[in-house]
């Protein structure tokens, strides 16, 4: 039991490190290509070791705690944000065999854990003793608490359609087709609402008000430097991975290959591609989508942000839940 736990812990930490490196590199390259630049090119061929070099730099940087900061909370916040990101990873099925904790309430668990992020951001912003940080933290509070509702409701719609709270069961229900294909309009709407709302929960552009570098310099992590800043950054990317993994599992079939109907020639060909590749491909597709948003759109203002949630996303997802329920009851999906 202990050995299993150890193996899992080590592999999760390794996954984190690799994900952090890969996603930061990917973000920089995606941004660069959209901005007609080359991006990092110096460290290694095409700059692939750039993030590694940056990590070394961040580790060796001075750790600054500002005067008048609440030392305990200031140090706790980056730790908390990383732990929360780690916890949410547990019930996600990476392939048909790879799943850390096959919980029967996986969807519920992820929704509950990921909404804890706001506490660490509030802690970090408040403990920094900086007005920019505080404004950023308060914005983050308003933002995450409201967008949590839309995320939850779009999850509910999918849970209704698939009839299960367990991620592995949800994947199994998509054996004949992914929910995005067979769920009709409700699945599409839920998918879009989920992507928009979870981008907001990730504090990424166009919803990056807590950071808003042109307004608040760096928002809630203005005062953080060195490895503590790196932890905030890492957890942002891990959260992005988790959100994308949830979206991929619920809407795009998780590790399930592209199937149409039962037992036909097309499905057998698709089965030759290993499930892990399917999963990674879908996750990275959604990550790319979120990055695409970031490098295209301007930032919203705080009142527009809340208008979008309360006047648009929330009513739409409420109606969507009804529609999903109706489809489930009538069995209209195939």
């Amino acid at each position: 039991m202990i050995i299993t736990a150890l193996i899992i812990a080590i592999s999760v930490i390794t996954l984190f490190a690799v994900l952090g490196l890969v996603l930061v590199y990917m973000e920089r390259k995606v941004a660069a290509f959209m901005q007609i630049r080359l991006g990092p090119m110096r460290v290694g061929p095409w700059g692939i070791a750039q993030t590694l070099a940056d990590t070394v730099k961040l580790i060796s940087k001075e750790d600054i705690i500002p005067n008048g900061a609440d030392k305990f909370l200031f140090n706790l916040a980056p730790l908390m944000v990383t732990v929360i990101a780690t916890l949410a990873l547990a019930p996600l099925p990476f392939s048909d065999k790879w799943i850390i904790w096959d919980s029967n309430v996986g969807v519920f668990y992820v929704a509950a854990i990921s909404s804890l992020t706001v506490i660490s951001i509030l802690t970090g912003g408040w403990a920094s003793n900086n007005k920019y940080s505080l404004i950023g933290a308060m914005r983050s509070g308003a933002q995450i608490v409201s967008y949590e509702l839309s995320v939850g409701l779009s999850l509910v719609a999918m849970v209704l359609l698939s009839g299960s709270l367990s991620f592995s069961d949800i994947v199994m229900t998509q054996q004949d087709a992914w929910w995005i294909f067979k769920g009709h309009l409700p699945a599409w709407i839920a998918f879009m609402v989920f992507i928009i709302a979870s981008t907001a929960e990730l504090n990424r552009n166009p919803f990056d008000l807590p950071e808003a570098e042109s307004e608040l310099t760096a928002g809630f992590h203005t005062e953080y430097s060195g490895m503590k800043f790196a932890l905030f950054m890492l957890s942002e990317y891990i959260n992005m991975f988790i959100v994308s993994a949830v979206a991929a599992t619920l809407f795009l079939g998780g590790w399930m290959p592209l199937h149409f109907g039962q037992d036909n020639f097309f499905n057998h060909i698709m089965d030759y591609i290993p499930p892990l590749v399917w999963f990674a491909g879908k996750v990275f597709f959604i990550i790319f989508l979120i990055m695409w948003f970031r490098w295209t759109f301007p930032r919203l203002r705080i009142d527009q942000l809340l208008t979008l949630e309360w006047k648009y996303l929330l009513p739409i997802s409420l109606i969507n839940v009804l529609a999903a329920a109706w489809i489930t009851v009538t069995g209209w999906h195939f």
């Binding site: 995606v30 290509f33 959209m34 007609i36 695409w292 490098w295 295209t296 759109f297």
Partner: peptide
């Protein structure tokens, strides 16, 4: 439309 533009350059 905006995403089409950035997508074009990407």
């Amino acid at each position: 439309k905006g995403m089409k533009m950035t997508g074009y350059y990407f």
